[in-house]
Design a protein around this nucleic acid. Structure first.
Ligand SMILES: NC(=O)c1ccc[n+]([C@@H]2O[C@H](COP(=O)([O-])OP(=O)(O)OC[C@H]3O[C@@H](n4cnc5c(N)ncnc54)[C@H](O)[C@@H]3O)[C@@H](O)[C@H]2O)c1
Ligand SMILES: NC(=O)c1ccc[n+]([C@@H]2O[C@H](COP(=O)([O-])OP(=O)(O)OC[C@H]3O[C@@H](n4cnc5c(N)ncnc54)[C@H](O)[C@@H]3O)[C@@H](O)[C@H]2O)c1
Lengths: 212, 212
DNA sequence: GTCTTTTTGTTATTTTTTTCACAATATTTA
DNA sequence: TAAATATTGTGAAAAAAATAACAAAAAGAC
């Protein structure tokens, strides 16, 4: 199996599960514990680990602290990850005010907008004019950007971000952004997610069947 | 191939792509056009369609209007889909103020919270006390809920929602919610999504390779 | 110190998903 | 009207992913 998106998402989930298990007092875990906590199979856990060369002890399982350290390292959680937000509207502001990223080693450096009424230096995280984006990204060597502008502006703004040096975009606009091979794009389409939910709820209401 | 989550997500994307193509003046499309617009292969498009018994004309492709109608029907877009939001904080409010759902046939009926300072009848969409949730869900026969409360409250609140009759939950809290077979849960973990992006950007910086 | 038990790490198997390939058949051309 | 051509619809093949199986090794029992 390759080292694909799904696999890394599971690795993130293992990290979260491990933190919970650690809080419960676990010092070592077996692949089965972790599998239960993360909602996958134990062989999936071992398979994923073997892909990253993560090893435990036969019969002894894995030491929680070492495992967390190893996974944090894989996910880049040991360095501060700098992020910018573009578009300080509903979603942009929600992310801007969220306190949870910082504790996970993700630092929102600034937000950018074209609407002057959104600009602010009072906030802990400043909202700056879009024109300042290029300089800011280059000065601070930011590689990751969250795109939360209106649908019509999204494609254009993504090009500005990429030309400034952004290499990864988390896109909330309801268009399927695509870009050159050296830029990673993760599209989050909340309406599609809701449609999905609605489909399966309605289908279940009809058939009482179980899906996926 | 079964009719799984990924397949329905593609169906949603086809719908969005078709709307764009229609706006560009397309009256009929071939599987290849749609594939390009949605970023998949043409045989994938035809396979998905065959799963739903969607047929076109050999050599003639698919009529855009008919196709949109058929897909809207599959996704329940021809009836109004009622949704509630639980948790009127950062994310909850962002969703509450979003105008885009309505045009997609998704009607946010109300939001619920435990913090009285969040209550409001002034807004187009009211924010009500959590105690009112059960009655509201039952009166309005709401089946879909968006969960946007704090992490610690999420599991408990999900149980309240399910016991009130909610059958599908879009969960933003960073825990992997699970529930009985007759409830569909879609977990959106933005930190995990960012971690994923960060991983592939960092990996690419190291190897200059291309991923998935 | 040997035996038993448990759990990893990895290879084999199965299942799922995607792509390929092509007969069937509309549409267009002549 | 017949021939040429393009595109669907689907079964077969390939690829990818998940699960199962089990030998090897570590921990504990006695
Ligand atoms: N809010 C939601 O719940 C929600 C749900 C689903 C999808 N979305 C999508 O997320 C995106 C943001 O949604 P929102 O509700 O926050 O929208 P919004 O209109 O509240 O905010 C958009 C922000 O982008 C800014 N902007 C517009 N053009 C810009 C440009 N060229 N450069 C920089 N900034 C620019 C605007 O000034 C505004 O502040 C939209 O594409 C929307 O479709 C939002
Ligand atoms: N805001 C973000 O950008 C962001 C990003 C990633 C994840 N999340 C997750 O999304 C969820 C919401 O985040 P947020 O930033 O909107 O948080 P928030 O603290 O702004 O809002 C949470 C809301 O839930 C309400 N609440 C708490 N307990 C409740 C209960 N038992 N019943 C009903 N309401 C209750 C609170 O009163 C508050 O209004 C959290 O779980 C958070 O971890 C948010």
């Amino acid at each position: 199996m390759a080292l694909n998106r799904k696999c890394i998402i599971r690795i993130s989930r293992y990290k979260n599960a491990l933190n919970r298990l650690k809080a419960l007092g676990f010092v070592k875990v077996f692949s089965g514990n972790l599998a239960d906590a993360a909602g996958v199979s134990s062989s999936q856990v071992r398979k994923d680990f073997s892909l990253f060369g993560i090893t435990g002890n036969r019969r002894g399982g894995y030491k929680v602290d070492e495992l967390i350290k190893r996974i944090r390292d894989i996910l880049g959680k040991n360095e501060l990850q700098k992020v910018i937000i573009v578009g300080a509207g509903n979603i942009g502001k929600a992310l801007l005010h969220y306190k949870g990223f910082e504790s996970g080693g993700i630092k929102v450096m600034a937000a950018f907008d074209i609407d002057p009424s959104k600009y602010s230096h009072e906030l802990e995280i400043p909202v700056l004019p879009l024109e300042d984006l290029r300089g800011f990204v280059q000065d601070h060597e930011v590689k990751i950007g969250i795109l939360a502008v209106t649908e019509v502006a999204a494609h254009h703004v993504s090009e500005i971000m990429i030309s400034a040096g952004i290499k990864g975009i988390l896109n909330f606009a309801p268009i399927q952004l695509r870009a050159a091979d050296d830029v990673v794009i993760n599209n989050i389409n909340l309406e599609v997610e809701l449609e999905n939910l609605i489909y399966f709820v309605n289908a279940q209401a009809k058939t009482d069947g179980v899906f996926e």
